[in-house]
Design a protein around this nucleic acid. Sequence first.
DNA 1: TCTTAAATATGATTTTTATCATAAAATATT
DNA 2: AATATTTTATGATAAAAATCATATTTAAGA
Lengths: 144, 144
Amino acid sequence: MMLSNSSKYAVKAVLYLALHSNEDHKIMVKDIAKPINVPQAYIAKLFQQLVKESIISSTRGPKGGFYLTTENKNQSVIKILNIIDGEKRLTSCMLSLEKCDEDKPCPLHAILSPSRNKIIENLKDKTLEELALDVKQGYSYLPL
Amino acid sequence: MMLSNSSKYAVKAVLYLALHSNEDHKIMVKDIAKPINVPQAYIAKLFQQLVKESIISSTRGPKGGFYLTTENKNQSVIKILNIIDGEKRLTSCMLSLEKCDEDKPCPLHAILSPSRNKIIENLKDKTLEELALDVKQGYSYLPL
DNA sequence: TCTTAAATATGATTTTTATCATAAAATATT
DNA sequence: AATATTTTATGATAAAAATCATATTTAAGA
Ligand code: FES
Ligand code: FES
């Protein structure tokens, strides 16, 4: 809907890390692909960006893999979306492509801008750890 | 954001019709392209679908063109989106691609489902005529 | 120090979406 | 009836997104 395929995959993969990894237990990309049903090479590429922006952590070589530090886990989900899709995807006008402006709103602005702002706010406020906790407690489910 | 390029174009073009056409004053596709800044051939193709689904009306030959009847104007905007993008685009799960389900929600469901439902509801309730009226009264603007 | 196992970097391919082009069908006007 | 003008139908091309593949770099362990 409002997320690209890539950012959906990224969120799923990172949440998988949040649930199953830590500094002492790293996970290889090939072991993530199957459980979340995303092509292995695809995740590998997405993870490169996320490592570069320090959303997730990695070490290479034998016994290496990807993982989340405590610091990583306290980041907001929205960072993933902004890195993969770019900020405009969430904030740009629904009709004119550029400049969503209260002063000169498009015909759909009043209909969806408030709800959209709410979504953005919620995404900003929610950390990876909080989302993972929901899953752990059975309030939500990590989809295939 | 949540609309494809095609449905953005479609909404803009149909609202242009709502503002400037009626049974007695039809508009040719070549005269719509420029003011709303959408390629002429692109609109032509989109309009074919919309005519087929009776969102807009048309007559061909000289003195022909596209226009909106009163009945057309009383349709909801969401119909355009559903025809061009398909219903799933608005309703599918943000993470798993299929089945947005309250009983087995994904980690993002709680964050965005209520706002999304609100948007869908608003889109359903708003007719083309109402949107056009907003523009006419200066409450909103039809973008390039 | 050598081998092996992992991420990283880079690029190729495929699929989808967006855009362009053109011939056929229909209607008003002469 | 002939002509001109418009939509309609269909397909071709271009651009972007998604997916796949492979060679390079890094680190652990023998
Ligand atoms: S101006 Fe179009 S969504 Fe805000
Ligand atoms: S289950 Fe994912 S958005 Fe509803």
